[in-house]
Design a protein around this nucleic acid. Sequence first.
DNA 1: TAGCAGGAAAATC
DNA 2: GATTTTCCTGCT
Length: 305
Amino acid sequence: MEFVARLESPFDLEYTLESGQVFRWEHRGEWWYGVVEGGVLKLKRDGESLTCVSSSDKVDSRFVANYFRLEEDPRPILASIMVDATMSRAVHQFYGLRLVRQDPWECLASFVLATNSNIPRIKKMISSICSRFGERIGFEGATYFAFPTPQELAEASVGRLRECGLGYRAPFLKKVAAAVQRGRLHFGELSLRDYEEARDILMSSLPGGKLLLGVGPKVADCVLLFSCAKDEAFPIDVWVARSLLRFYPSLVPAPLRRKLQSSSKKNLTRGEYETLSLAARNHFGRYAGYAQQYLFMLARSEAIP
DNA sequence: TAGCAGGAAAATC
DNA sequence: GATTTTCCTGCT
């Protein structure tokens, strides 16, 4: 089916789809191709609207508006995070970058795979598990694959998962899939809770007190920001950490500053992560997540050492 | 709290 | 071609 989505506020497809929130979009010719909700969707910007062609009736204009959060006007949000010169620069440089609302299961699984990896590789791992375990979808004469369901990955053997190049991530992914499949984690509940509660649920305080292996604060923040619209979440990866060190040294406690500058070991401890994330949320306000996304883009574009 | 393993591909030298 | 880095978490 083909339809058009009206754009009434700033929206840049490339910045949004290439900002490390989502890993299944590909730019070919004048179209962006993606697989969402078990259907193929291709998109093209036409002036003040978005031309959409999808393989599934479920992927309609309402879905697209929800996925890209088109009902919200980001301008007041951007104005609220531009509290300093660096953020003003980042927002202007990547104007139109928006946060998406993707499927939480796909988001969780994707970021469990993201540990100790890089974006090209994350895309490769995800593409691999989709073609091996996901449902086949035909579209315009080509074959695509849906993101595997929790059940499909829970039933996969660790060995078969490893064949997708997942390495040590394979057992973690299987465990997370099993937890979701068994109903130990309800994504619907995350959206109802506030940020702190939702984070606790994701990070371990499940009813039985059993923790979801492979889900630490970084992964939890990514899921809450990129799929549950918890805009105060401030995930800190290596790029954002470097960005904070470079542009916001006063937000970084002196001992951590020294550690990040001197030694090559720049992975944050749990406590350091919480301290930094809280400082950033205090600095940028309730939409700190948007600031994080612009900082991520800024850091990568400038290849901060 | 600190230190380390984990595993493969990309980035860098 | 070898080494370092990579959107990190769990364990000791």
